[in-house]
Amino acid sequence: MRSALPRRLRFGLALLAAGFVAAVAGPVFLPDPNAILDPRGAGLLPPLARVFVVQLADGTLLAGEAVHRSGDKLMLWRAGTWQELRLAEVQGVTRRLFVAGTDGLGRDVAARLVAAGRISLAIGFLALALAVLLGTVVGLLAGLGPGPLDRALMAVVDAALAIPLLFVLLAVSAFLGQQTTTVVLLLGFSSWMGVARLVRGLTLQVRQQPWFLAAKGLGLPPWRLAVVHVLPHLATPLLQDATLRLGDLILLEASLSFLGFGVPPPVPSWGSMAAEGFEVWRLAWWLPILPGMAVALVVLAFALVAEGLGELARGEA
């Protein structure tokens, strides 16, 4: 059976669905992303590594690559030596798999990637919502309002477009302090101009349509014209634009936190994970590469969905 959806759209949606499942279900299966498990025994483990985790009576966790019993002792191969543990002290031995390895502190990279993804996506979506809301309101006002208002608003949009984003973002976040809210606000305010331009252009097209003139002739109030007679016609292009924009926002957020000006430190973020990883990349290639790949996959997924939506709208499917 052939699906009616373009291949890119299907591929992109599948990628997004996989990411979504990981983001929602991941925390159920994965350990606490900030939990430190025995850095000496389980630090910098490569992806797919398995270790034995020994829990002692006092709650300490020790990790090692091999265990065996000799008499009343439990021998644990940990950090290059056999370590003797009294059996009476040992509460349990489990075997753990690290799908994406561990970082220098022995934290589970897979769990951190998922936690960071939730943060990145949440920031992206919130910033996008802000940008789309602001851009749509400004675009509608400019497209439907009187000429002087249109020119004034478009001058503001042009001015805002001329401001070099990352520089202002950095300058501002350096002085407002690192807060997740600040990052969302900054990203949102840096991205609404494109939406405003798109909405204005489409609104000007709608204004030419006979049915719009008819609705206007009926004497409907401007807000009703905007919400009922213009907005529904913008849905498809706006959705396509928003999808692409979301990818851009996630890329920007990654750059921001890569430079150390994103969400504050204890919260993992793909950008900051990559930045930390680059300091030890010779010891552990997976630490910088995996977060970078995660960003790339998510951005690719959104771009594919946006392109697929465009194909669908043009009827090329």
Partner: peptide, 18 residues
């Protein structure tokens, strides 16, 4: 070109350096 667009700058730079 889609991949080039989606890859974060730091990953491209790191890849080239490596």
């Amino acid at each position: 070109s889609l991949t080039a667009y989606a890859l974060p700058t730091f990953l491209v730079a790191a890849g080239l350096i490596w």
